[in-house]
Every structure is written in structure tokens, then in C-alpha cells.
Design a protein around this nucleic acid. Structure first.
Lengths: 293, 293
DNA sequence: TTTTGTATCATAGCATCACGAAATACATTT
DNA sequence: AAATGTATTTCGTGATGCTATGATACAAAA
């Protein structure tokens, strides 16, 4: 009598898998609900649901009254083929429709609700998220207006200029400290991308990996506002960068540059790492200038 | 049969006054609804309401069928004694209550609605705004959690570090261009503060003027993401900087520094201006370190 | 023709209720 | 005692209807 997994459960499932892998839990070991619930910051209820789901998939053995036991170590979460959550996904859809001129420049909430058949609370979260990256803004009275950032090529340049200000500086921040676990995982992902044959369908996963790379560096800076700004930039870039149009060659170059930056940072050569990151961003900027609309 | 002015009308009223003053409209000149509505990006309905309100205050003469005529040039909007809007104001209240330990570290939306007797949509806007500056975050399941930024002295340092990255850079941005109107108005406000005797009650107005100064520089950079970041920082600082605790002497120093920066920028000496702004921020940072909790 | 006055429509916010699920307390088993 | 099973409470979301007011169309006056 399994129900459809809920939003929370869908988000929790990959985190449980990460938990199993990063803690190095071996087959035969029992997973306790309370421990997981505490780690995930939720109650036992959704944890239970996730564990039952994993049991159905054969990752866990469910034994009545004796909890769940790991059967086989699960694969790391499949390469993401979609944005991290539904709000983000819907933001993307709205942005695309606007770019294809399927939406007027100004529009009311009710109109959007009708067009997309969504509820107001959901729509509001979407609009506020779009507003956070300056893609739309509330008009003084009723309705919302799209800002020119979507079509505007200069917006992309400004974005790179902004990132050039903060991202290299993040590396040079006094408290900069990389997390070893993150470093290993990020390396693994990059190497996987270099090894695998290029498929167009992987461009979303590529973007998400890149975003995680830059966010990870920002997080390592120890400055929460740098991290906030980089997260915001990532969300913004998601709207225009989901389609990788530069071919596999650029994928390789980009991945290698990321890996080299990580190498330098691990050696403590932060100035070099910052310089490499600066060049990396400058190249991306001029590429986007060439290909830009 | 005048009703209570609505939110929109309260926001529009000072903008109409600004309109009158900045356009240099003289007494006896007629204000047309359509022109104002177009300028304010709203329909005639709320404009009408505002004009009627101004007529009651004696600023305008209402003549049936012949619209509204300016009677006397209104004073510029009184020095703001409150945050720019109600959401912001409520954010402030929540933040204060948290700092005074009147709120637990984790709390549900329903609980907040009961405590403050507000509607959910309003509360959601408040929470999302607080989340935007990393003061709270949604827990994975139900409820929200306050982040340590409020009590944390290091958060303030990080904020200054972040601003040191972007604000001087804003001045040096290639497209930097100050608006003459803004410059004059900002100068006038600063000089008024220097001239007037210091009152503790003016600390909110002081903060808002300072915020507008920094935001204006960011806007002049021509980089929308710098502007976005500075706006965000201003909103964040509003929570901890509404009480000016450094005395009138520091007010004077700060205002004079602002004015000198403007002087230099007007002369086109942007490097000097950027350096002065850098020093200005560094001084504020070390001051906050001394007085900081 | 342009602007105001007036009527009508549409919008956004609020209140209420219902429901699935998360949180939590208690019972039961190991 | 610690973990799981089960029941109860609380929470957050969606659906619906209502209302003040913003948007708009049309009439009337200047």
C-alpha cells in the first residue's frame, strides 16, 4: 500500500544514500530511524517512508520489529537530469516561455495561475525566486513585470563581472578551508565527466556539477554572504546555461581547469588557485560574448 | 467619506510629492491623473485616491471636473521614522524578538501566526525576506530555523568583508555614471544631517540615508548584480544598525566622508573615491569590532 | 481632443475548511 | 534501555468563496 513519495521524501532519499556512502556503512549493518531522523533534521515519519522505499528497491532488508539492514551499497544519486526542486523547475519553464515570447512583458498572478494551472502559494514562491535574481519584479499595483535580464546579453556580462569580483576573493579569504570529503567527491564527479562520452542530455548534469563546484569554493571561504551571492548567481545561470552549446572540447577544458584549481588549493597555493579561477571566468565571459545572442 | 489609505496609496503618496518637487511644478499648475498614473506605473484609481488625500492636506486644490491644481509646494517626505514597508517592519520585529530570546531557535509557521496574529501570506513574505539575507531557513520538513547570524558578531565582520569586495569595485566599474539629480538630493540630505542637532530618534533616518547612499553608488555602477547585492546587504544591516550607538561625532565624520566621496566622484577621480570608500568601510568594520557584542 | 467622472471587471488578499503528511507521544517488542 | 510499531496531534498546503481595490472601458465635460 505504498503511496506516491512526497516532496520531502524525494528530497530525503538521495541524502540517505549519501549518508550510507559517506559513513562507510557496510552490508549487514542496521540503520536506525532515530539516528537518521536526527541527522536529516526531520522526524521519524518521513525517514520511515524513505527506508521502506529503499527496501522495495532492494537496497535495504526490512525485518519486522528489527528495523532496516543494509543489503547492498547503493549507487550515488544518478546524475541529475532536472533542477534540484519543483519551484526551480517551474521557474525555468516560465523563463523559457518568456524568452520564446509566449508571455507578455507584464502579467497578473491570476493570469499565470490560469495559464499554468498552478496554485497561488506555489506561484508566489516561483515569482519571489525569480525576483531574487532580478528576472521579474512586482509592479506597484497589481501584476508583475519581466525585467530585461532574460534577453539582455549585457546581463550575462554583468554576471561574469560580478563573479569575478567575489569568487577569486573567496579563495583568498582569511578563513578559507576546503572540506576533504567535498573535495574527493567533486574530483570524482569531474573525472567521471572526462571519462564518459559526451551526450547532449548530460548538459543539465554538467551545469549542476559546475554550480556545485563554484558553490563549494564559496562555502570554503567561510563568508556566508559570499556563499549567498554565489548561490544566487548559480540560480540565475541555471536559466540560461542549461543548454551547453560549446561542445565536448570545452567540457574537457573546463573540467581540467576545475581539477587544476582543486589541485593547487589542496597544495595550499591559494594565490595560484585564485588566479586560475579568474582566468577560468574570464574565458567563460569571452566565450559567452562570442556565442551570446 | 475618505477611507483609510491603502498600502499602495501610502507608498504612492511620497512618490507623488517627489514628482512635484523634482519636476519643479509650481503652484497653480494642474496635475493630470493620466500623466501621474503612467509615471507611477499604476492605474488612475490609486492616483485619484492619493490626489484627494493631498487635497485634504491642503497641498492641492480639488476643482470639480477640472482636476487638481498645486496650491503649495509640499515638504520633502518627512525623514523616515520607519522601515520602507510593512514586511520590512515586521521582519525587524521578529528579529528583535529573537535577539531578546522571546522566540525559540526553531518554530513553525502556525506558531508564528498565533504569536503575532498575522495571516499566512504575509508571514510567508516576511520569512522569505528573512531567508534572503540568511537570517532564517526552512527546515526540510515543517518549521523554520533561525540561523546564528543574528547573535553572531562574526556575521557582521563577514558583511563588511563582503561589502569591501563589491562596493569599491562598483565605483571602478567601467560603466560607472552618477545621476546628477540623485547626487544633489543626497548632498542635501547629508548637509541637513550635519546642520541639525543630533537626536537619538533620528537614527532610523540616518540609517536609511546611509543605505540610500551606498545603494546609489551601486546603482551608478551599471551592474545590476552589484546593485542587488548591496540592496541585500542594506536589508540585512537594517536589523542590527537601526540603533546608532556611536554618538554625534561619528555621524559627522561619516557624513563628511560620504560627501567627500561624492566630491571626488563628481570630479571624475574614481580611484580616489574608491579608496575613500574602502577606508570608510574599514573604519566602520573596526568600530563595529570594538563595540560589537 | 484631452481630461475627468462613473460604472464595470479583474485582481489580489483574506478567511475558512479539508486533507495528507510530518511531528510527537505512547505502547510494544527485543 | 533502546529501537520499532502505533495512535494522536499539529502542520502546511490546496480549494473555495468573499471583499476591497486596482485596472479599464465608456460617458461627459472642458
Amino acid at each position: 500500500m505504498e503511496h506516491e513519495p512526497t516532496r520531502l521524501q524525494r528530497e530525503l532519499l538521495p541524502r540517505v544514500i549519501d549518508y550510507i556512502r559517506h559513513r562507510g556503512i557496510r552490508p549487514g549493518v542496521r540503520l536506525t530511524e532515530l539516528e537518521l531522523a536526527h541527522h536529516l533534521q526531520v522526524s521519524r515519519t518521513p525517514v520511515r517512508a524513505v527506508l521502506e522505499q529503499l527496501a522495495e528497491e532492494g537496497v535495504l532488508d526490512a525485518r519486522p520489529r528489527r528495523g532496516f539492514v543494509l543489503r547492498s551499497i547503493p549507487e550515488p544519486e544518478a546524475a541529475p537530469g532536472a533542477p534540484p526542486n519543483e519551484v526551480e523547475q517551474f521557474c525555468l519553464r516560465v523563463a523559457r516561455d518568456k524568452m520564446n515570447n509566449r508571455l507578455p512583458q507584464e502579467i497578473s498572478e491570476s493570469d499565470l495561475m490560469r495559464r499554468y494551472n498552478v496554485t497561488r502559494p506555489f506561484l508566489l514562491r516561483v515569482l519571489m525566486q525569480l525576483a531574487e535574481v532580478a528576472l521579474v519584479e512586482r509592479k506597484p499595483g497589481n501584476g508583475w513585470a519581466f525585467l530585461p535580464s532574460l534577453e539582455d546579453a549585457s546581463a550575462r556580462q554583468e554576471s561574469y563581472d560580478f563573479r569575478l569580483l567575489i569568487e577569486p576573493a573567496a579563495i583568498l579569504a582569511p578563513g578559507f578551508a576546503l572540506d576533504a570529503l567535498w573535495l574527493g567527491e567533486t574530483r570524482r564527479q569531474h573525472e567521471a565527466f572526462l571519462a564518459a562520452p559526451w551526450k547532449e542530455t548530460a548538459s543539465i548534469a554538467l551545469f549542476e556539477m559546475n554550480a556545485a563546484f563554484h558553490e563549494g569554493l564559496a562555502a570554503a571561504s567561510g563568508n556566508r554572504y559570499i556563499l549567498l551571492a554565489v548561490r544566487q548567481q548559480n540560480r540565475l545561470r541555471r536559466f540560461s546555461n542549461y543548454d551547453w552549446v560549446y561542445g565536448f572540447e570545452r567540457v574537457q577544458i573546463s573540467c581540467r581547469e576545475h581539477l587544476e584549481i582543486l589541485d593547487r588549493l589542496e597544495l595550499g597555493e591559494r594565490e595560484v588557485g585564485a588566479a586560475l579561477l579568474r582566468r577560468h571566468l574570464e574565458q567563460a565571459r569571452s566565450l559567452s560574448r562570442q556565442f551570446g545572442e
